[in-house]
Simulated scan of single mutants.
Amino acid sequence: MNFLTARPTYALLAAFLAGDAVASAIPVPYVAANMDAMRVPPRIRPAVPVVKGVTALGLASVFRFPGVARVTTALLTLYFAGAVGIHLRVRNRVANIVPAVLLLGVFGTMTARGPHPAPGGVRAPGSAA
């Protein structure tokens, strides 16, 4: 088992994204300044914490619905690919680009490998054999 395929990693990243959703909803001054720097239109900003919150739920679903968690990591891979592109387009500071690049790599790897099966190789209830 790899750290990125472990179910607790999905839970940890879900908690991180839930916190990020709250920081985006408030918005925390650093987050607001970063959205300004990336030229995120005001009409789109309310959707950002919603998207992050939904993805947190998708990652947390790994214990019951590992397939949903894997689809969520695929969508997060696309999200962070777009984020990296936006950061590069606006020539954002390297310190702001690095986290997006790292998360792109993390979620891309998680998508490729998928979540580790439950202990003992038992599948989640209701999943196909």
Rank of each mutant, 00 (worst) to 15 (best):
A56L: 04
A11D: 11
D36P: 05
V50A: 12
R45H: 08
T111S: 04
L75H: 07
A124H: 06
T109P: 03
T55M: 14
R93S: 13
G53C: 01
P29R: 09
V31E: 14
V28L: 15
G53A: 09
M1R: 15
P46C: 02
M110N: 00
G58H: 00
M110I: 00
R64I: 12
P115H: 04
F80R: 03
G67Q: 11
P8L: 06
A118T: 09
A128K: 13
G121K: 00
A6P: 08
A33T: 05
A21N: 06
V122E: 15
P46K: 04
V94G: 04
A56G: 02
L78I: 13
K52L: 11
I44G: 00
A33M: 10
P41G: 04
P66N: 08
F16I: 12
R7C: 08
P117L: 09
P41T: 03
A124G: 03
N92T: 11
A37F: 08
T77E: 00
R39N: 13
M1V: 11
V101E: 01
M38V: 10
V68T: 15
P42Q: 12
I97T: 15
G19W: 08
A33H: 12
A83C: 05
V90W: 14
N96M: 05
V71N: 03
R91L: 09
S24F: 09
F65Q: 15
D36A: 12
R70Y: 02
V101M: 04
R64W: 15
S127V: 06
L13I: 03
R113Y: 03
F16C: 11
P99Y: 03
P46D: 05
D36V: 11
A60H: 04
V54H: 10
P99C: 01
G105Q: 01
R123K: 14
A21P: 09
M38H: 10
R89V: 09
G108M: 07
T77L: 01
T72S: 07
P41Q: 03
R123E: 14
P119N: 05
V51Y: 14
Y10A: 04
F80I: 08
V48H: 04
P125L: 10
R93H: 12
V50L: 14
L103S: 10
A128S: 13
L59W: 02
V106K: 00
A47L: 15
T73M: 03
L88F: 08
V50H: 07
F65C: 14
T9Y: 00
A56C: 06
R91I: 04
F65R: 15
A74M: 14
N96V: 07
R39T: 07
Y10D: 00
T109L: 10
L59K: 03
P41L: 07
A23T: 10
V71E: 09
M38S: 10
V101D: 00
